[in-house]
Write a protein that binds this DNA or RNA. Structure first.
Length: 972
RNA sequence: GCCCGGGUGGCGGAAUUGGUAUACGCGCACGACUUAAAAUCGUGUCUCGCAAGGGAUGCGGGUUCGAUUCCCGCCCCGGGCACCA
């Protein structure tokens, strides 16, 4: 394959290229881009003013975490998108806020500093400077006066302030429960920081460690976080992730009293109260069982040992493991509040202490895990819900009497041919298995054998298996003129030999015996609506029915639909409808140096005391050593000057809290600070907040779907509750999530794979405008796409074409080319709509189509060329600015010009191409005037030679005309 | 296992209130310019067929005058959750 020689391309744009009057100047991005970037800066072109008569638009990027490696070409993709979007919005007359800042606290920065033996503060400053330089090269329209940095004490003062407000409301609390501990990062982590039971940063296996932690009560907001997703214009998959993460499940709390001298009621949480009659034992977590010791439960030694051992194993086991289910009979009996039966209480490792109530009612017939356990320990399995099928080909007929029957289906297989024995009914359009009613006192297998013998004469059958429990079905039995409600079981046999008795005449007159291939055995060809149930049980022995159905063996609730029965049963057993969540409170302290100090003081006398607001910020002390201690204490604990303080309440001896906040603290509210970045009195001025909030468009990667985006929503809702912000949600819209740019090899761009492409090189080679156009054109914004420096040439060629069109401008050209005019209006419309919907790739494609068209003309109307420049400007601000100003198209920057509008009447031309189809196949095209009446169109079309040949000697059954689009002749 | 999203040329991809499938770009081939090459410009580029015409949007059915688009059943890929009761 031929490779472009980039060095040679570069020679084409030497730095020395000079403008010559009257002559075409070469497009030299090196000269143009730097010049305009400096000029824009000088003119404060991108300074945003608070308040304006214009409508506001807040466009936000997820701010970067400045790593030591600098930017690769994947990073700017999202920034380019918001830049394009915000530039268009500015031209459309909005007062746009498009800020940038840096999120720099946390482990990556600290680890980088440790590795390179420089102080994190110094490292962060250096990295930020590098990032800013790289960003500036691409020509973004940020208002750098509003830059923020989460590690700036003037910023984190307010992060600490929010924490204090939460503390005051009881939403920040100390916990001593076991938490996730990363032995490599030497810190506790939140649930959100894990990936498959490993540390999301370093992939170490996580241990459970009991230790003192600050925790934020995000669970108080679980329901609102879930509900208010409906208010958001976000991509489906992000909402979906949040939904899954919050993990709401509705069910009921039901009490099972113990029948024992140990008086206690075991409360269980279940999502399936309808199955309670099938609850044949209770399964209790060892964590819960252990608490019973405190209530004077006299357990046997074996039981105590089991509990201790299981708890020990659990501490060691990684979160991902699904160990073999074990358990022990506690010796206790509980009363099933629905059936009244006494059922055993088992202590098991498959019930978790921190989910629900730590105990479940086990329904082995309708839950895979309970079934597995019951099978292992030989516990009773009681079926209480069965599938309910209505025969759609033979539905019950209204007004006919209904008969309830107990039925059997016999599935007989010829063990040599594999074919299945069926009956072809002679007076009805049915094919069925041998079948019939089960007689009083008859077992299911005998009934099946009897039916096979009576109906087909075969007598030597070997039982293979009974296909699970009953299935309820409703159908109309035409041969008996009655509706049936049949409770049916199926029995499978192998035919041992062909020995066969004579069958009665009435049977042989009703149906003939046929043998069918297994592939033929499908509903509705086989007229049993239960068939799919049989088929799914056919090869699969373990069959637990977890679906919706009809209740059986459930006393007064029999025959009820299982979903409808839920509420009634909860009421019957005195249970309580309730809701649980997977979301856990946010473990908020880290035992590391580089984070916001938690503004709390521990006083010997007064206990936990918040730092008074006037003393904020609690600054991170300057230290020599900031390595993690590994003891579960933060490195700050060793800085005695800093740690030792006086209690703000009693003035006595006190120590500062030494844990720091997690990386996600600063980013949970940063968008608010952009509205008012320098305010010393308050987090954000309420008037400014009211003006700018909410963020109109937010852009960033999917990896933040369940952390940053949940945390920020949580903090925002809290700030709403205490009156700091005025909107329910922080980010109204996430247009599309940002798809990664992979390396040319299809792998994630990383130093490790040696596939990193640096934007500096690419900008030097092709220019920032080409980079911007290319990244937007590569593919759909939310798609994951491999980088290709070779493919960039297309975007460069496009900009060069635009550049060359300058020579064709003709002020006297009257723009009377109707075709071009239509295209221009279509392009204005499409580019505007596509940028709005983040479909940048198709916006550029339509710009290319316009440019290709203009290139075919000898002269270009000035106005049309200006329109082209304007709608291209958001993508390629430098080159369009250069052309704009060089030709004196305006006194000011093209950025300050207004977005062109399109004329709805000019979106289609007066001449329309109509396609002509014969039987739906394209046969001919014709150009006619717009809105030509159907009759005229048809007669015109029929004169076309191709149409005439096609229609010759044929009868036209139908003529379909779709206005301004097509004619279709249906012929025989 | 449950829940989302997706499958279209050699490649990135376009087109869905059902109406010309493969826009735009890359690549490739040929041609023009050039001593030559690069760049640039032009032409061609789903597939079978000389043509007429046929076939193709993961697979199999269905609805329709007409299906990439809607319905049913599968297969595969990506993602979220997961002993969550």
């Amino acid at each position: 394959m031929k490779q472009y020689d980039h060095k040679k391309i570069e020679k084409k744009w030497p730095d020395s290229a000079k403008a010559t009057t009257g002559k075409q100047v070469e497009y030299n991005h090196k000269k143009i881009e730097k010049k305009w970037q400096e000029k824009w800066q000088q003119d404060n072109l991108y300074q945003t003013s608070d308040f304006s008569s214009k409508p506001k638009c807040f466009v936000l990027d997820m701010f970067p975490y400045p790593s030591g490696e600098g930017l690769h070409v994947g990073h700017p993709k999202g920034y380019i998108a918001t830049d394009v979007y915000s530039r268009m919005k500015t031209m459309q007359g909005f007062n746009v806020l498009h800020p940038m800042g840096f999120d720099a606290f946390g482990l990556p920065a600290e680890n980088y500093a440790l590795k390179n033996k420089i102080h994190p503060r110094v490292a962060v400053e250096k990295n930020i400077a590098r990032y800013k330089k790289q960003l500036e090269m691409i020509g973004f329209n940020y208002d750098w006066d509003r830059e923020i940095n989460t590690t700036d004490p003037e910023y984190y003062k307010w992060t600490q302030w929010i924490f204090l407000q939460m503390f005051k409301k009881g939403l920040a609390y100390e916990s001593f429960a076991p938490i996730n501990w990363c032995p490599s990062c030497q810190t506790g982590l939140a649930n959100e920081d894990l990936e498959d039971g490993r540390c999301e940063r370093c992939s170490s296996e996580i241990e459970k460690r009991p230790m003192r932690q600050w925790v934020l009560k995000i669970t108080d907001y679980a329901d609102r976080l879930l509900q208010d997703l409906d208010l958001l214009d976000w991509p489906k998959h992000i909402k979906e992730s949040q939904k899954n993460w919050i993990g709401r499940s509705e069910g009921a709390l039901i009490k099972f009293p113990l029948i024992d001298s140990f008086k206690y009621e075991v409360e269980v949480f279940t999502t399936r109260p309808d199955t309670i009659f099938g609850a044949t034992f209770l399964a209790v977590s060892p964590e819960l069982a252990k608490t019973w010791f405190l209530m004077n439960w006299e357990a046997s030694v074996e039981v105590k040992d089991y509990i201790d051992q299981t708890l020990k194993d659990r501490a060691k086991q990684t979160l991902k493991d699904n160990p073999e289910k074990t358990g022990i009979n506690s010796g206790l009996l509980a009363k099933n509040p629905a059936s009244g039966e006494n059922i055993p209480v088992w202590i098991t490792n498959y019930v978790l202490g921190d989910v629900g109530t730590g105990a479940i009612m086990a329904v082995p017939a309708h839950d895979d895990r309970d079934f597995e356990f019951a099978t292992k320990y030989n516990l009773k399995v009681q079926e209480v819900v069965i599938p309910n099928r209505i025969d759609i080909t033979n539905p019950p007929v209204a007004g006919k009497k209904s008969v309830v029957r107990s039925n059997v289906h016999a599935i007989v297989r010829n063990s040599i041919t594999g074919k299945i024995l069926c009956l072809n009914w002679l007076k009805h359009p049915w094919v069925t298995f041998p079948m019939g009613g089960v007689e009083e006192g008859e077992d299911i297998e005998s009934a099946a054998r009897r039916e096979v013998l009576e109906e087909t004469g075969y007598k030597n059958l070997k039982l293979i298996k009974i296909l699970g429990g009953q299935v309820r079905a409703e159908y109309f039995a035409a041969h008996k003129d009655e509706n049936r409600i049949a409770f049916t079981q199926a029995v499978m046999f192998d035919l041992e030999n062909e020995d066969r008795d004579e069958v009665k005449t009435e049977e042989s007159e009703a149906h003939e015996v046929i043998w069918l291939e297994r592939e033929k055995i499908k509903y509705p060809y086989i007229a049993h609506s239960e068939l799919n149930d049989w088929l799914s049980r056919w090869d699969d022995d373990k069959k637990v029915f977890i679906g919706e159905g009809v209740l059986v063996n459930s006393g007064q609730f029999n025959d009820l639909n299982s979903v409808e029965a839920q509420e009634k049963i909860v009421e019957f057993v005195g249970g309580k409808k309730t809701t649980t969540y997977k979301l856990k409170d946010w473990v908020f302290s880290r035992q590391r140096y580089w984070g916001e100090p938690i503004p709390i003081i521990h006083c010997v006398k007064c206990g936990v005391v918040p730092v008074p607001e006037k003393d904020l910020p609690v600054k991170l002390p300057e230290v020599e050593h900031y390595e993690p201690t590994g003891t579960g204490e933060s490195p700050l604990a060793n800085i005695t000057d800093w740690v030792n303080t006086t209690c703000p309440v009693c003035g006595g001896e006190a120590k500062r809290e030494t844990n720091t906040m997690p990386q996600w603290a600063g980013s949970s509210w940063y968008y608010l600070r952009y509205m008012d970045p320098k305010n010393k009195q308050t987090l954000v001025d309420p008037l400014k907040e009211k003006y700018w909030a909410p963020v109109d468009v937010y852009v960033g990667g999917t990896e933040h779907a369940t952390r940053h985006l949940i945390y920020a929503r949580f903090w925002h809702k809290f700030l709403y509750d205490i009156g700091v912000v005025s909107t329910l949600e922080p980010f109204a819209r996430i247009g599309k999530s940002l798809g990664l740019i992979l390396g040319e090899d299809g792998k994630k761009m990383s130093k490790r794979f040696g596939n990193v492409v640096n934007p500096d090189e690419v900008v030097a080679l092709y220019g920032a405008d080409t980079l911007r156009v290319y990244e937007m054109f590569m593919g759909p914004f939310d798609g994951e796409i491999s980088w290709s420096t070779d493919s960039m040439i297309g975007s460069r060629r496009f900009l060069e074409k635009v550049w060359r069109l300058q020579s064709k401008i003709d002020i006297n050209n009257q723009a009377d080319n109707a075709e071009v005019l239509v295209l221009v209006h279509q392009t204005i419309k499409k580019v505007g709509e596509d940028i709005e919907s983040f479909s940048f790739n198709t916006a550029i494609s339509s710009l290319m189509i316009l440019v290709n068209k203009l290139e075919t003309l000898d002269k270009i109307n000035l106005e049309i060329y200006q329109i082209l420049l304007k709608i291209l400007a958001p993508f390629a601000p430098h080159v369009t600015e250069e052309i704009w100003q060089n030709n004196n198209f305006g006194q000011e920057s093209i950025t300050l010009s207004s977005w062109p509008s399109f004329d709805g009447d000019k979106l289609s031309s007066d001449e329309i191409t109509i396609i002509i189809q014969i039987n739906g196949k394209l046969r001919e095209k014709i150009v006619v005037g717009k809105d030509l009446p159907d009759g005229e169109l048809l007669s015109k079309v029929k004169t076309l030679p191709k149409v005439q040949t096609a229609l010759e000697g044929k009868v036209i059954e139908k003529e379909i005309v779709v206005k301004n689009r097509l004619v279709n002749f249906v012929i025989v």
